[in-house]
Write a protein that binds this DNA or RNA. Structure first.
Lengths: 245, 245
DNA sequence: TCGAAAGGTGTACGGCGTACACCTGGCACT
DNA sequence: AGTGCCAGGTGTACGCCGTACACCTTTCGA
């Protein structure tokens, strides 16, 4: 009853603790069972207490994604771009495998979170330093598509969740957008390079400049070409690993 | 007020009308704004009336997906498997483009709907009659992955929504499952062929027999190989269409 | 004529996200 | 030492959701 030992009054909560508890809850009971009320209960707290640490459920989900994606870690680049990309993507896969809800959440959210952007930037960087042109890298990213995590397609379609208050006209925001873009370009240079290249004839910040249909067919043909090559070689899965010839 | 002209008492509702209204509503206001209440209101009806035509919201969503996917239509097979698959997949893409919510719904539901199975069966059929082995076709389907619509990965993970009541042991259901499987095999022979091949050492009905990691790396390497080939060729998008060589 | 469906209605319940007013304990500053 | 601020936890309440259940009406075949 004395004040000190009474400290069983539970650790004082924090954005980080909330996020970790949310991840654990989603891991344990599935993402659809994750409600603010349930999460609060898990933390021994009244639901509204959570809102002192996350703005709303959407932000909670974003935070959870970032917590998972942030733990991907980067295997050292090395000279071989192919190995670097391969390693990074498989690392991402590994990070997401233990949190099956993450992919679904990423897809359902509109924009990429910072950790997601960082991951993309690293992959794009591997392609660029490996000698692929900006042009080719752009299409290659589209071709990888959800393979890189499950979000590439959408990433270029929506700006990364800048707090654009509605109501005012679209015009006076241009300068502000430009500033945030420059900031973003500093942090994620390769992302910016690609975004800039595909936005040449478009005034929006991260252009709609890419032709969805083209990207889709680019990737589709790449795969179909690969399939045909395998067929010609009489490929079998038991002989896989070493490409014949 | 007489009985005949009083027929403004609205068309008598039907599963089909409900489904069509739901699709229209989702198209117009987005899938997240589609609620049973809102849909009922749109139809000039009390919410519970819908439940006379669909079992619940999940079945409504399935029905909507089937309505969209069912309208894909099959361009004639032709001798060239590559063109056939390409045409079919692009047709699917076209069908889904005007219903952006469909992909998301398909991914969020657990099992494939009949129309989905039919589409898959057609694509698999093109590969098989084109000369790809069952083995290769299997991996190729995984490689196409979400490219074929957005669902291939999950399709083999869960049985297609058979009403498996919980509570009883897993044993006495075997015969019943076998029957439904045979029925399914008749309707979707190519799907069955693949399912059978990848389930050789597994007693579940549609086996967990495939190695996710292998499938993932198969597709990834296929793409990376393609990227490298393009890099070597100095590929540019402006010269695309005719593969340089 | 009648009884049984089939189909639309009304009410109600439990759960959700969250707005808003409130309390409270510890800390900075006088 | 006193005081006022404020970060952080609380309680209540609102409007939405899906849907169980009992009810009423219309229609139609026997």
């Amino acid at each position: 009853m004395a004040q000190p030992t009474d400290a069983a009054r539970r650790a004082p909560l924090s954005r980080d603790r909330v996020l970790r508890a949310a991840v654990a809850l989603a891991d344990g009971t599935g993402i659809e069972a994750l409600s603010m009320r349930r999460l609060a209960q898990e933390l021994g707290v009244v639901p509204m207490a959570l809102y002192k640490h996350v703005a709303n459920k959407e932000e909670l989900l974003d935070g959870m994604v970032d917590a998972v994606v942030g733990g991907i870690g980067s295997p050292d680049p090395g000279p071989d771009w192919r190995a670097a990309v391969r390693g990074r993507i498989l690392a991402a896969r590994e990070a997401l495998r233990s949190h099956p809800w993450a992919l679904q959440v990423i897809r359902s959210r509109s924009g990429p979170t910072p950790a997601l952007l960082a991951h993309m930037d690293a992959v794009i960087g591997s392609f660029r330093t490996g000698g692929l042109s900006v042009d080719l890298t752009h299409h290659v990213m589209h071709a990888l598509g959800s393979r890189i995590l499950g979000f590439t397609q959408e990433v270029f379609d929506a700006p990364p969740a800048t707090a654009t208050a509605p109501g005012t006209g679209p015009d006076p925001r241009a300068a502000e957008q430009d500033a945030t873009f420059r900031q973003l370009a500093e942090r994620y240079p390769y992302v910016a390079e690609l975004a800039g290249a595909s936005a040449h004839d478009d005034d929006s910040v991260v252009g709609q400049g890419c032709d969805d249909q083209f990207e889709f067919e680019f990737a589709l043909d790449l795969l179909l070409d690969g399939f045909e090559r395998l067929r010609q070689q009489g490929w079998t899965s038991s002989a896989a690993g070493g490409r014949a010839d």
